[in-house]
Every structure is written in structure tokens, then in C-alpha cells.
Amino acid sequence: MSWTWFHKLGSPKWFFHWSKSLALPLFGFGCICLLFGLVWGVAFAPEDYQQGNSFRIIYIHVPAAILAQSCYLALGLSGLVFLVWQMKIAPIFIKAVAPVGAVMALMALVSGAIWGKPTWGTWWVWDARLTSVLVLFLLYMGIIALQNSLNDVTLANKAVAVISVVGLINLPIIKYSVEWWNTLHQGATFTLTEKPAMPAEMWVPLLISTIGLYCLVAGLALWRMQTEILIREHRSNWVKQEVMKDGL
């Protein structure tokens, strides 16, 4: 297996050119998919026999929660890649994606709280699942704060990479919190091995909106990385040529 792509990806210049034509199509496809999944889920999917219509919150709650965790997994792995191989693109990725991940975690928390009121009778309980997702949100905020407080780029890169890797421990806790501890929260909706415990008219739109949100976030991540690359590489010649050429 050739590893050239891996080394190429580490170069900000190569990454910038590669990602330039990719961000808008990804983002656009994501928006369309998300909208399609949401309209299907909110207007056309059948009503839940127990929860009634409040279950329709699932079509944004689950995608946001999945994305919040996926973004963090990517952040932690990038931190690892940076600490081991000193790849230049890794800290750029962390800085670009942390705020997006924070928004996803916040969306999951807020939609969960609003869903909790009619379903459990309370906005919030300090149980394992809710608390560990709150910790995930606070980890994102910590990473953003640390990044902004350190002016020395070399130091900031390293510090943020370390905290990202350390925070990975929270992910299995979130995942298994519903199995290890007694909780009001239900188990996983999607698993790799079993069919979802709901009819297809309910889970297909959920799958579509999840894929949509993935693509939307990927598009945002590419744009944010490009911004960060331009800032960090503004002294190099290729940035000058790129900027004078115009266009996003």
C-alpha cells in the first residue's frame, strides 16, 4: 500500500488545493439531504404509539449527538497523529473542527432537554448519559479556550493535541453509559449489527438526516481549515498566488 496520500494530506498547500472544490458540493449535498430527512421525519413519518409527536425531535437529536461524538473522535485521532508524526495539518483540523463539534454537542443537549420535558417530565437529570455529553461539550469549550489563550502557535498546537487525546476517554463512557448505569435515556438507535427497533418509515429518514448532517459538517470543516491554512501560511508564495486568483 502506498502512503503518498497520507504524506500529501499532511501538507497544507496540497490540502488547500484538494479541498477547495470539495467544500461547497459537500455542504450543498448535506443541506439537501438534511432538509429531505427532516421534512420526511417531521411531516410524513408515523406517530410514535407511546410518545406521540414529541418523538419527532429524534430527527435532529440523534444526528447532532452522533456528529458531536464523531467530531471528537476525529479531534482525538488528529491530536494523536500530531503528537506522533508532527503532521502540520492535524492542529489545523483541531482548531477548525472544535467549534463545530461544540455546536453539535450543544444542539444534542438542548434538543434532549426539550425532548425530556414531555417524555420524562423533566428537562434534566444528572444521570450518566446526560452528564457525560455535558462533559463532552465542556471538553470542546476547554479546547477552544486553550487554543485562544495561547499566542505561541507551537505551544498551542501541542497543548490542544494533548487535551484532545486525553478527552478521548469520555467517548466510551458516553457510548456505554446507557448500559453500565441505570438511566432514563434509551439505548442506541443505530448499531452496526442489528436492525433498528423501529419501522423503516421511522429510521430511514433518520439515517438520511444523519448522513446529511455529516456532509454539512464536513463542508464546514473544509472551509474552516482553508481559513486557518491561509492564516498560518500567509507568508508563502502559493498563498499569494491563490489569493490574487480570487474566488472561494
Binding site: I57, I60, A64, S111, I114, P118
Partner: peptide, 13 residues
């Protein structure tokens, strides 16, 4: 009766 919950979630998102 769940309209206020569902729509506030989608508004916030």
C-alpha cells in the same frame, strides 16, 4: 400538544 417542544427544537437547531 407537543408542537411547542418539537418546533422550539427545530428553531434552535
Amino acid at each position: 400538544r407537543h408542537g411547542v417542544y418539537v418546533w422550539s427544537v427545530y428553531g434552535f437547531s
